[in-house]
Design a protein around this nucleic acid. Sequence first.
DNA 1: TTGAATTGCGCAATAG
DNA 2: CCTATTGCGCAATTCA
Lengths: 165, 165
Amino acid sequence: MSRPSQPKLNTTDHNGVSVIQSQAHAATSSSSLPVSVAELQQVPQLVPANPSPGGGKALPPSKMKKPPADKDSEEYRQRRERNNLAVKKSRMRSKQKALDTQQRVNELKEENERLEAKIKLLSKELSVLKDLFLEHAHNLADNVQPPAGAEGSSPATNSTSTNGQ
Amino acid sequence: MSRPSQPKLNTTDHNGVSVIQSQAHAATSSSSLPVSVAELQQVPQLVPANPSPGGGKALPPSKMKKPPADKDSEEYRQRRERNNLAVKKSRMRSKQKALDTQQRVNELKEENERLEAKIKLLSKELSVLKDLFLEHAHNLADNVQPPAGAEGSSPATNSTSTNGQ
DNA sequence: TTGAATTGCGCAATAG
DNA sequence: CCTATTGCGCAATTCA
């Protein structure tokens, strides 16, 4: 949780030294094995040994920390490369996700506009119908029963306010 | 796991070598001299000279490249630090922006729901009013004019379909 | 030309 | 043990 490892030290924290042999990938000709010297670099074993003492089973709490990092070790290089790939992948996904999210915003905004337009339309329709309704109601209430169709007799059209959000 | 195995463009791109002297601020040794050794490291001038050829004006194609990078130069360190700062800042903003965008999505989604609910409501209201209207229209059309308020005479309520967009 | 801002990349610590 | 994430520094580029 959180980030305990935060040495406020500025320049060069863990990095310290980072010498990488420039294995110019140029040539590519014959010399197949570029680096392979020094593979017998034994790390100081923090734990003397663990030859299944007694029963000969279980070895769970092997609190083996980390032998710093065998620099030019073959395996080291391999791990680094793997990690580098993972990092690249992860970052790619991250970026993609950001793009997707941005696009989502655009889509939602669009839909929002559509919905608002629809609301406007419905509101208008409603208001019209209500007005018509009121008009009739008035006619009925006033007992005004014209013999044959008589419109345009409403001086003040009560505009019903649309539901205020 | 599928390991595409990177072809060759392996590590050490521009990096090549990256040795960073610890430069522990704590005076580890007696030489209290802060830092100022080796400052006369002149870089090989890539361009011999540029004595304004022709007129004494204009200097567009001054292909002055960058003397690689004076490693322990005082100014170098300063520039690095500045850049590191800028990088941190930039990344912070970038991350913040991503968060904001994500939140924007949430807000828009919320508003969308609200709008849809409103649409549903309005549609319902409209449908009711329309029905009522039709009913009355029928009554009038059928010339059904009860002496004094007599409703409930519509056996089949015509359900007007709501406008489907 | 200069300096800040971005960007791609590798390293190491750590989370899962 | 391995991959995925994350913070960080370096260097090349792009912007102003």
